[in-house]
């Protein structure tokens, strides 16, 4: 890029410094328990300061508070962003960058400071400006500029609740964006699959189709699992199979705590299950807390897609 081109973009972008993205805008909803509850459940946050009114009444605060990390949430635009965002200084700035070839975008830093705690019933007003734009930088992602927005939050009494600084890199993507360069690393881990050979391929293919089969000797009708080529009772190599109802009872179980393997979902419980048909079978127990799993527990299996590549029987409390 020549100096002239650099001058051209910089004269456009630096004009945005100080411009207002959002004028002071009160949130559509006051701070409320319903949204806090949803947030806390999903974050796994059991802090009683957020939702336990009895506890909070006796605490040093005397009342429940909004989780500080929700400060920006109250003023979010909502589902209409899926159809595009309204034009404002930030979207205009982004358009200028894009026009000059700085199409890459990467959020790099976010800092929230909290000056006071807010409570259910309060209303948060957000005001956002473009606070600063860096000089031209060469980064690992490519050449570009950092711009930083500054949001200021106030309550219904006009008292300052906090601020948020959000730094974004707009850059010219390199020839090979890292997402392509590291393609091998981009595979999302899935469960380790069984190898498939002559003696078990048919079983796993049925599993892919949503069925758990049990091999049966054609000569003496003895069921066997895992499958093998000959009947240990009568030595016949002729076999067919029956479909299991997946009704079963737990003979033993263990919860796998360590090591955790990529591609598996934890908590992870494995069990030996006696199927109603009489053969034993190893699978996962889900649908209840690991501490509820016990020997003698009745379970019912369902074929489920457990990840992008894997169909497996998963057993639930019956």
């Amino acid at each position: 890029m020549t100096t002239d081109e650099q001058k051209a973009i910089e004269s456009e972008i630096y004009a945005f410094i100080g411009q207002e993205v959002y004028p002071p805008t009160p949130a559509a909803d006051d701070i409320n328990e319903a949204m806090i509850r949803q947030w806390a459940e999903i974050m796994g946050d059991n802090n009683p300061a957020y939702l336990d009114k009895d506890w909070a009444a006796k605490s040093i605060r005397g009342t429940t508070i909004s989780p500080p990390a929700m400060m920006y949430v109250w003023g979010q635009e909502g589902f209409q962003v899926t159809k595009g965002r309204a034009l404002n200084a930030m979207s205009n700035l982004v358009s200028v960058f894009d026009k000059h070839g700085y199409t890459g975008v990467l959020g790099t830093n976010v800092k929230q400071e909290y000056f006071k705690e807010v409570n259910p019933g309060d209303n948060v007003t957000i005001e956002m400006i473009i606070d600063n734009i860096s000089e031209r930088k060469t980064t690992g992602r490519g050449t570009g500029y950092f711009f930083e927005t500054l949001s200021t939050f106030t309550d219904q009494r006009g008292e300052k609740v906090g601020t948020q600084r959000f730094k974004v890199l707009k850059f010219i993507p390199q020839e090979q964006p890292s997402a392509v360069a590291t393609e091998d690393k981009l595979d999302v881990p899935t469960r380790i699959a069984s190898p498939r050979g002559h003696d078990n391929k048919w079983w796993w293919e049925a599993c892919d189709d949503g069925k758990v089969l049990i091999q049966r000797c054609k000569s003496c009708q003895t069921l066997r699992h895992p499958p093998r080529p000959m009947c240990g009772e009568c030595q016949s190599m002729e076999w067919d199979s029956i479909e299991s109802t997946l009704d079963g009872e737990i003979l033993s179980h263990t919860e796998i705590h360590h090591p955790k393997i990529p591609g598996y979902q934890y908590p992870l419980v494995c069990a030996v299950i006696k199927l109603a048909e009489g053969t034993n079978f190893v699978a996962n127990i889900i649908g209840c807390s690991p501490s509820e799993v016990h020997i003698g527990m009745k379970v019912k299996g369902v074929l489920e897609q457990v990840d992008e590549k894997t169909m497996l029987p998963q057993f639930y409390p019956a």
Partner: peptide, 17 residues
């Protein structure tokens, strides 16, 4: 694809590793 590899295949997908 050995009999041993197939044997482990009855446990690996469930994380019994």
């Amino acid at each position: 694809t050995t009999a041993d590899a197939i044997h482990w295949g009855w446990y690996m997908p469930y994380g019994l590793l």
